Amino acid sequence: MKRLLAVACVLVLTGCSTMPSAYDLPLPGGADLGDRPYRVVVEFDDVLDLVPHAGVKVDDVAVGKVEDIGLSEDGSTALVRVAVRGDVLLPSNALARLRQSSLLGEKYVELAPPAQRSATPLVDGAVIPVTRTNRNPEVEEVFGALSMLLNGGGIGQIQDISRELGAALSGNEAAARSLLSTVDGFVGALDGHKDEITRALDGMDRLASSLESRKADIGEVLDGLEPGLKVLHEQRGRLVGLLDSLDRLSSVATDVVDRSREDLVADLKALEPTLRTLAEAGQDLPQSLELLLTFPFTDAVLDGIKGDYLNTYLTLKPGGRR
């Protein structure tokens, strides 16, 4: 405080026209930057109420301070330039987080190494991009979310769900228990057949891969079907008319069969003796037909003929008129 008063007195006494910013005044406390600090630019989506001269910590130990806060050229991110003590070693892929010392405390920047450390160190002039920075939720945000939950949020809905669930299960405990037992059995069956299910899914995956590899052939087939489908579409009216005609024909045929059913049954009964006689004839009928075609010479006579001629002796008796 004495140093601040002294600086103010000097400015007033010397009549300086340019007043320095409050952020340029030296403040007591803070981290010791040493003789050779290095500076890093950290990109944030939102710096909230972070101010210059705020602390920079590593593992809750103050190792630097915020020197300047600005905006990127497009105004989408905040650029925070921090100074870090030279003996603090961090990897080049270090993370930066905006933290708060207590519930109502000041904001500070926390630097930390990631799980997978880079082999190269963080050097002077490096930039920590916005993809590796984040911030804690504000107290106002937490209370706002809590207020939304309590006032017309999920609490009332949970109460309604609990009440309706109790009313639905009241008196149906046995059915609910049976349902849960069935679900348990179903899940157990699925677990017992998980190998088959896995094989089926693998088969579907192979089928999908095969279809994907033959996509061009399938497209060619579908393109080839297009003319046929177009003709079917154009002939749709005629096809419908044909089906209607077939429907009428079937109706007429059914009516004819119904009307002539008794005559048809009588004709079949009249044919019964003839068919029975033909069945009893057996092989005699085919043999008779063979004899009819070779009359008067049977197959046995033809087997006895030698050569191409047949010698016969005829006896003619005179009589009658000459």
Rank of each mutant, 00 (worst) to 15 (best):
S210N: 14
D267M: 14
K215A: 15
L249T: 08
V231N: 07
D244C: 02
G241H: 07
D263C: 04
L242K: 01
L211H: 06
K215M: 11
E220K: 11
E226V: 07
R261M: 03
E212A: 15
I197M: 10
T254I: 00
S209I: 10
L239C: 02
L239F: 03
A266M: 00
D247E: 14
V252R: 07
S260C: 09
R248G: 07
A266F: 00
Q235E: 14
E234F: 11
E262I: 03
L232H: 01
V252K: 03
L249C: 08
L222M: 10
V231Y: 09
E262G: 10
L242T: 08
L201T: 13
D217M: 03
A189F: 09
T198I: 13
L190D: 01
A216M: 04
P227H: 00
M204S: 13
S209R: 14
G228R: 07
L201S: 11
G219F: 03
L243W: 01
R238H: 12
G219W: 02
D195L: 13
D244T: 05
D223F: 08
V231K: 11
L225A: 06
G192I: 00
L211Y: 06
A189E: 07
D205R: 15
K215R: 13
L207F: 15
G192H: 02
L207N: 14
L211I: 08
R238V: 15
R206L: 09
S209N: 14
L190T: 02
V256N: 02
S250W: 06
V231F: 06
E220P: 00
E212Y: 10
V257A: 11
A189H: 07
L239A: 07
H193E: 05
R214G: 11
S250A: 13
D191V: 08
D195P: 07
R214N: 13
G219L: 08
V187T: 12
R259H: 01
L243M: 04
S209K: 14
D244E: 09
R259K: 03
E234I: 10
E220D: 14
V187Y: 06
L239W: 01
L264M: 12
H233A: 13
L222Q: 10
R261W: 00
V221T: 13
V256K: 03
E226N: 11
R238N: 14
D258P: 00
D255H: 04
L190Q: 07
S250E: 10
V187I: 11
E226D: 15
G237I: 01
Q235H: 11
A253K: 09
H233T: 13
V252L: 06
R238S: 15
E220S: 13
A200F: 15
D263S: 08
G237R: 02
D263I: 05
G237D: 02
A200L: 15
S250F: 08
V265D: 06
L239N: 04
G228Q: 10
L190K: 09
K215P: 05
D244N: 07
R199I: 05
A200V: 15
V252I: 05
D263L: 05
V240Q: 10
V256L: 10
L222H: 07
L207Y: 15
Q235R: 14
H233F: 08
R206Y: 05
H233L: 09
G192K: 02
H233C: 08
L190F: 02
S245A: 12
S260N: 04
E220N: 13
P227C: 00
D202P: 07
L232P: 00
L225N: 03
A200S: 14
L225K: 01
L242E: 11
L249K: 04
G228T: 12
A208Y: 10
R238P: 04
